[in-house]
Design a protein around this nucleic acid. Structure first.
Lengths: 218, 218
DNA sequence: ACCTGAACACCGTTCAAGT
DNA sequence: ACCTGAACACCGTTCAAGT
């Protein structure tokens, strides 16, 4: 065929197909050749749009991060003590975006790198915390620890991590896990409950620290 | 050569070499052929000791989990309100074990599966919380959320995730990240500080919930 | 500029053959 | 039981060739 008069591929079409493949069959299922087949082109065609497979993965990751709502960080001025509400709403949106694509979370958890949406996210959180009265050092730490918690919670279902067959949990070896085989059945509620409990505990703990902050000038 | 009179390989030798390869060069550098070369045998030899590469990875992961200290959960009886101290000590040991081998954390974060050390860990945490007075449902959630936080914090350095070259952080795009290029220089202290802040906030938040629990009979 | 087939250096895994 | 070389069906990526 050689060059068609209207391009067969675009970065967007490739990213969409790659994400679907990862969602449906896991990160290991994404090979350049397989993806090309899915798009009805030959393998090397992809290299006209992305320099390497890693570059392509970066674009997939950033498209997922782009789904995270950041609007709560540009609230009207004067609402300075609203940071816990903003953080709560953001954490839920962040988790929802990642949990929709759990297979790609290990890639994304490596940090913002040069991905624009990831950098925008970090900027919005940090900026909001500083404007709310947190010292810059503390704001950095809070951004980090929130990312730890959210990515950890989206990385894999806690409940689904336990095998569903009861005979795994020999009472002699694991005296307290007798009911663990039932976890997989409740995976949605267990993970949701753990996330919400952890989020509220974190926000409460941070609020205690915020109250102890020396008075600020503003 | 064929079968030597004293075996060239053992599961332990293979696991040790695999972990070193992963630590030194990353998860992608671990191939069965490369690992075999490192061990001075031919590729297929490994299949006498592990059924698949995934089985081998499972063994590597479990050897890392085996380093986590669980002794704080078998404290003398009567110390029922000691769960925050136990959780704190455990979380630090857990994080230290994972942070020593960050490249394998994505694999390990998928859940305990059938790995004995991972199941032992889950059993110890859950058992201790229940014996301390937490309802079983809450104990499950706390085990989950602590794993979220610890694996998230060990998965990747927050600080190292930001590029060290200042020109990435265009002030027009990211108004608050002007100093972010310095993060990589402080990666140890930033990540340590974020982990400790988050851990204490979580424990404080959980303690508030523990106090609100209806009185228990015992 | 954008696609192709051929080619290179890799993979994980199977299997018959050797001791 | 435990190792070997040969083989199979895959990889990511490069490159010359086509329009």
């Amino acid at each position: 065929m050689a060059r068609p008069r209207t391009p067969l591929l675009s970065r967007e079409r490739i990213v969409t197909a790659a994400l679907r493949l990862i969602d449906d069959e896991g990160l290991d299922a994404l090979s350049t050749r397989r993806l090309a087949t899915e798009l009805s082109v030959s393998g090397p065609s992809l290299y006209n749009h992305f320099a390497t497979k890693d570059d392509l993965l970066d674009a997939v990751v950033d498209s997922v991060i782009g789904e995270v709502d950041l609007s709560m960080f540009s609230a009207p001025p004067g609402s300075t003590a609203r940071w816990p509400e903003a953080l709560r709403a953001w954490a839920r949106s962040y988790r929802a975006a990642l949990a929709a694509h759990p297979n790609i979370v290990p890639v994304l958890a490596q940090g913002p790198g040069r991905r624009p949406n990831a950098l925008r996210l970090a900027d919005a959180v940090f900026g909001h915390l500083v404007e709310s009265g947190w010292p810059r050092g503390q704001a950095t730490r809070i951004g980090a620890l929130m990312r730890y918690f959210v990515t950890g919670s989206a990385l894999a279902s806690f409940a689904a991590g336990f095998p569903a067959d009861a005979e795994v949990y020999d009472a002699a070896d694991y005296p307290h896990l007798g009911e663990a085989h039932r976890l997989a059945g409740h995976r949605g509620t267990v993970d949701e409950g753990a996330f919400e409990t952890g989020l509220e505990a974190l926000l409460d703990g941070l609020a205690l620290r915020f109250e102890r902050l020396p008075a600020r000038s503003s």
